[in-house]
Design a protein around this nucleic acid. Structure first.
Lengths: 347, 347
DNA sequence: CCACACGGAGGGAGCGCTCTCCGGCACGCC
DNA sequence: GGCGTGCCGGAGAGCGCTCCCTCCGTGTGG
């Protein structure tokens, strides 16, 4: 074996090496490797053997440099300020579902997501720089905060980006979202149909569009049932926040007979508080959650909830982004998914 | 403003552009941007202004090409075969914690993880190719299966890699792990101290070292307490698997008074089955989980469990990998973390 | 006063790849 | 039979950056 056939581990084989072994030019090897234009089948075979013999793998950086494509997208989880420990954040089953959906959408084109957290100005600047330097071709953004400045920064920099959830401010950015309004209506109608008369709501963060829409939709639907007003307490989409809100509501309205929680995690907290106070669910109090995450089936009783097809939405988000990367000029798109009521044991 | 000062969005500023604006050479700008060697402070200032004026951001691919560093690591979740929907996988709070810890460890050096799934030969080959082509400098691997061939592939290719959990087969690879044996002992001792006489175990996957070690450790500790044998049923680290195992155990051993589940998710399943059968926890049956994940506090009653400092372990995993990338010659290291028993309500 | 050393800036050679352009060859048509 | 027309392979010019080397200017010691 010659040196050309057996490159040292220190220096990986290059196109040139393969070309030398195959007795053709660099261009021809490139054409075979990338499958472009016609190459004589015999030569193709020779090249393939040379590739195998040298253990050639194209260098990503060199290719990226000339194609101006990183074949990577950024998956950004963005809040504003203290997350109080990153672990916490990713413990929410919601993110797991987003990741699963994104991976699924990125698999066909052979791309991969790089995970980034943007929770302060420094990390936001880092995210923007990462994209501008071409290390990722575009961004998938999940905001956990309404006041998040990142969507605006992304739009301003003209970077391809797709959001999970409508941005708080109008922005020329594509997004996927759930018809949250409609989802809340489903919950309200179900509670009304069960005959609940004293319903309370544990809302999401007030500045997050998803939270607002669920709250507004619920109010509106209740109004349609002749209840102009029902008590509300703000949660923060965590189990603990849901429990705290429920404790307050129960103290002020001990006669409540129905609860709508703006997500499943908070509904779990609600369930725990109700149990502590000796209320039976669903006999004494009916509880409806939102998301249909794994928390819904893990809860006891299993949660009746409004299903949000997160995986599907995340997958769609990636195809939207891929389109946008391919056609940078195109106008932003939005895709709205329809919620569905999943009836289990809690209401 | 000249064209040089106002590059079109189509063509981002390059070092050359900045150099022209600043009236210096490309080399000088590079030195200033990278902060190497002495550069005259006045020139430094001029260059900084030119960088700001042109909105220059160094091109990642070009830099990676010459430095042979991607400043990226792969975070690989690897199993063997059907995951039955990727969403499922990432719903396990364990992964969320790993991700949080990794992000935390990668933040100081300004690196980011790219997420990859390796669940069949094709995706495994893809992972190896990704690393060999230099798109990531090393790999962080979480195996969900003992028979996973990826660790061996990584070792064989001589790629920098660190595992979460001891590999099933001896391999020259660094890893972090928990003293699982010791953790299981903690659980056994606690159960014995409570006076449980008829204890059963819901084990993890038989081919995963973590599962084996917990099982072996538990057996050994029980033997020390004079119980040579206790019934076992195999689970798969999921809630559903835990419930199924518990159902079998309860049918065969209706008089059981203690359960050790090899992770919290399975313990949740155990709790649900116990509740369905009218057993009170901890009065009739004591239950101990493993991990101290978010599932432990979400469960009702809250789980007594063996804490595994996953975030800390994941962070350590990244520093181990970074070391390895910097010193490719160094021998593999392993770091073992000590478990702690967290006593809550279930035992 | 000159030789030498040293600090600091510029020049240039790549890193490994893609892609355009060009040349050569074989074939078909007039 | 000559010339146009494809088709396929090769040559070469970069992509934007780093880093080595050179070179120049200044300060110092002999």
């Amino acid at each position: 074996m010659t040196d050309a056939l057996q490159p040292t581990a220190a220096r990986p084989a290059t196109l040139e090496d393969v070309a030398r072994v195959a007795g053709v030019s660099r261009s021809t090897v490139s054409r075979v490797v990338n499958g472009v234009r016609n190459v004589d089948p015999a030569i193709q075979e020779t090249v393939r053997q040379a590739v195998a013999a040298t253990g050639y793998v194209p260098n990503g950086a060199a290719r990226a440099l000339v194609t101006r494509r990183a074949d990577t997208v950024a998956l950004i989880v963005s809040g504003a300020g203290e997350t109080g420990g990153d672990g916490m954040l990713f413990t929410d089953p919601f993110f797991g579902r987003v990741v699963g959906g994104v991976l699924c959408g990125l698999r066909p084109p052979g791309m991969h997501p790089v995970l980034m957290l943007a929770d302060d100005d420094a990390s936001r600047a880092q995210v923007i720089a990462y994209l501008r330097r071409g290390s990722a071709d575009g961004a998938l953004l999940v905001s956990t905060h309404g006041g998040d400045p990142l969507p605006a920064l992304l739009a301003e920099a003209g970077l391809p980006a797709v959001l999970f959830g409508r941005p708080a401010a109008a922005l020329p950015l594509s997004y996927v979202d759930l018809a949250n309004h409609e989802g809340a209506r489903l919950a309200a109608d179900h509670l009304a149909a069960r005959g609940c008369r004293r319903v309370v709501t544990v809302t999401g963060p007030a500045d997050l569009p998803a939270g607002q829409d669920r709250q507004a939709g619920f109010r509106e639907a209740m109004a349609r049932h002749g209840r102009p007003w029902s008590p509300e307490a703000a949660g923060d989409f965590t189990r603990r926040g849901g429990a705290a809100a429920m404790t307050r509501l129960l103290a002020e309205h001990p006669d409540l007979d129905g609860v709508f929680a703006a997500n499943d995690l908070m509904a779990q907290g609600v369930l725990a508080v109700l149990r502590e106070h000796g209320r039976r669910v669903p006999e004494d109090v009916a509880v409806i959650g939102f998301d249909d995450s794994s928390a819904a089936t893990a809860a006891h009783p299993r949660l009746t909830t409004v299903r949000q097809p997160v995986e599907e939405m995340a997958t769609r988000m990636t195809t939207l982004l891929l389109d946008r990367i391919r056609h940078p000029g195109a106008a932003p798109t939005s895709v709205l998914f329809e919620p569905r009521l999943i009836i289990r044991d809690s209401a």
